[in-house]
Structure formats: structure tokens, C-alpha cells
């Protein structure tokens, strides 16, 4: 395994015990994983396992108690424009129009650009999420939740970060809007070599979007226990991926993990000595199976 684009090593978050007595509260510890450049990785786990804290540490907004995050061979310290963040609550500046929310970020990224360049660049990304034709001049309060999240995604992609961090970006959206924006997200991402790290609670969303799904055990003493390779080729079509032989294998594995094993494997005593997540992959069925049985049957009946 190469050294990786992003490497999370022995990360832990502990809070001092209340009133200074007893053990400190360890949310997670010994969290180790790597992400390659251009990978789309989702992380799944129950509430309270520290997913958001890991994300905030990656963003540089929070500090871990132990361990380091290394991106491109450099330790992550503090926030940076190389890491774009999309929050669940959109975090748009409500006194600025949708367009100004994006140009604000583009200006911060490209300080030497002219007004015209900033505008053109911002419009490009607003168009990618389908937010033009007047809607871009509205304030966030005048936009629906889905539209706000589109602005937030456009803002994050417009600064062209190397790593994009998405904290449950679709958590507050209805299923239909969620589907559309997922497709838009994939469309923008596929044109780049950007790396995406995303928190989600939705197993189907994780399989549809990700190359790899990291599974976290329940806290306290949570850790990343498994790294499941989805192994479904891209481009993926929503109606076709359910036909793929891996789909239900992966799905069952994830659901099973969340329903049972995240609890069973919780706690310090179950941790592996290396602290690395176990890689789970479902072999590509095209290679595994010598010949599809249906095809054989076909041959005979002919």
C-alpha cells in the first residue's frame, strides 16, 4: 500500500472527566485509515461515535487529543482552503445572496483574480448545481433546503480543494431532492481528481456514491473497524446498480454491521493490535464466475 494522499494515524479524542474524577471520556481512539487521491470515501456509524469530530479534525476546525492527520506528506494544522467543507446546516452567510456566497469563497481562494474572473468561475459552479436564472440573486432564507445545499456544494467545489469534506450534507433533505443532488455531486466530482470524505447515515447513499465505506463501532472507545470496498464500476446509474451482484452483498454487510456488529465489536477489548481497519471486499463477480449459468442454459436450448 502506498503512503496515501491522506493518512489518519492513531487519532483519539478524549474529554477530561467531569469534576476531575474518574476516567476521562474517550470518544474514539486508535483511529487509523488512509485515503487515496481521487477516492470517494463514506464513513458510517451510529451517533456519538465521533464521526463529526473526525471530520472537524480533518477540516482543521477541531483538535484531536492524540494522533495526527497527514495530507500530502504534511501534518494538518488548522483550517485551509485545500480542504473544503460542506456542513449539514449549509452554513451559508444569510446576509449574502447565493452568488455572493460563492464569489466570497472564490475571492478568498484566488486573491489576484479580477471581478469578472471571479464571477465567471462562480457562475460555472452554480450552473453545475443548476442554480442560475435568477435564483442566484436570492438570499439563503428565500431558497429551499435543497437549493441552499446546492449553493453550499457549489461553494465548496468552486474553491477546488484537494479534499472535500461533507458532513451529512443530505441529512435534512427529502428523498427526491437528495437523489438529484447526489447525482449533481457525482457529476461535479467525476470531472476532477478531488478526494471526497463524507459522513452519512444512509446505507444506500453510501453504496451509490462511495468507492469505499468505513464502518465505525459504537462509542465510547469507537474505532474504524472495517473498510468495505463497494466494487461497483462507475458511472453508476441509480436503477442499474441494484442489479449489480455486489449491491446487496455490500448492503447486507453494512446493514448487518450497523444493526448488530457495531455494538458487538464496540469497546477496547475488541480492537485489533494494528488498529488498522479490516478490508472487506466482495470479489468482482465478472472475474469470479467462469461463465454465467444463464448463458449456458441459453446455449443448450438453442
Amino acid at each position: 500500500m502506498s503512503n496515501g494522499f491522506l493518512s489518519i494515524e492513531a487519532l483519539a479524542k478524549r474529554f477530561p472527566a467531569q469534576n476531575g474524577e474518574g476516567e476521562p471520556l474517550t470518544v474514539f481512539e486508535n483511529v487509523n485509515f488512509r485515503i487515496e487521491r481521487g477516492e470517494f470515501v463514506c464513513i458510517v456509524g451510529h451517533s456519538g461515535c465521533g464521526k463529526s469530530t473526525i471530520m472537524n479534525v480533518l477540516a482543521g476546525l477541531d483538535e484531536a487529543t492524540e494522533g495526527v492527520v497527514i495530507m500530502n506528506g504534511k501534518e494538518v494544522k488548522g483550517p485551509s482552503l485545500d480542504r473544503g467543507v460542506v456542513f449539514q446546516n449549509y452554513s451559508l452567510l444569510p446576509w449574502l445572496s447565493a452568488l455572493r456566497n460563492v464569489t466570497f469563497a472564490v475571492e478568498a481562494r484566488n486573491r489576484a483574480w479580477t471581478k469578472e474572473q471571479v464571477r465567471a468561475h462562480s457562475y460555472k459552479y452554480l450552473e453545475l448545481v443548476g442554480l442560475t436564472g435568477g435564483a442566484e440573486h436570492r438570499k439563503p432564507a428565500q431558497l429551499s433546503g435543497g437549493m441552499r445545499q446546492r449553493v453550499s456544494i457549489a461553494r465548496a467545489f468552486a474553491i477546488q480543494p484537494e479534499l472535500l469534506l461533507l458532513d451529512e450534507p443530505f441529512g435534512a433533505l427529502d428523498a427526491l431532492t437528495r437523489g438529484t443532488i447526489q447525482d449533481e455531486l457525482l457529476k461535479i466530482w467525476q470531472g476532477t481528481d478531488q478526494t471526497v470524505f463524507m459522513i452519512t447515515h444512509d446505507v444506500d447513499e453510501a453504496i451509490y456514491l462511495a468507492d469505499r465505506v468505513l464502518l465505525m463501532t459504537n462509542g465510547p472507545y469507537a474505532r474504524v473497524a472495517e473498510s468495505v470496498e463497494v466494487g461497483i464500476p462507475r458511472p453508476r446509474a441509480r436503477d442499474e446498480i441494484v442489479e449489480h451482484p455486489n449491491y446487496y452483498k455490500v448492503r447486507n454487510h453494512l446493514v448487518h454491521f450497523l444493526a448488530r456488529r457495531s455494538k458487538e465489536m464496540a469497546g477496547r477489548e475488541h480492537a485489533t493490535p494494528t488498529g488498522r481497519p479490516e478490508t472487506v471486499s466482495f470479489d468482482d463477480p465478472e472475474k469470479e464466475r467462469p461463465a454465467p449459468p444463464q448463458a449456458a442454459l441459453y446455449a443448450i436450448t438453442r
Partner: peptide, 27 residues
């Protein structure tokens, strides 16, 4: 805090954060 975090993730200087984020938010 979200708005301050927006300023932080966009690497705004303290002066810019004050004028572009905190002042309009507190206005």
C-alpha cells in the same frame, strides 16, 4: 459558530473575518 467556521475554512485574516463575517452578522 458556523459562520466563524466558514471564515476559518476560507483562511480569512482576522481583519477580513471581522469585516466580512462578524460585522454583518452582528450588524
Amino acid at each position: 459558530k458556523d459562520w466563524v467556521n466558514v471564515a476559518r475554512t476560507h483562511e480569512l485574516s482576522p481583519i477580513k473575518t471581522a469585516f466580512l463575517v462578524i460585522l454583518p452578522a452582528a450588524a
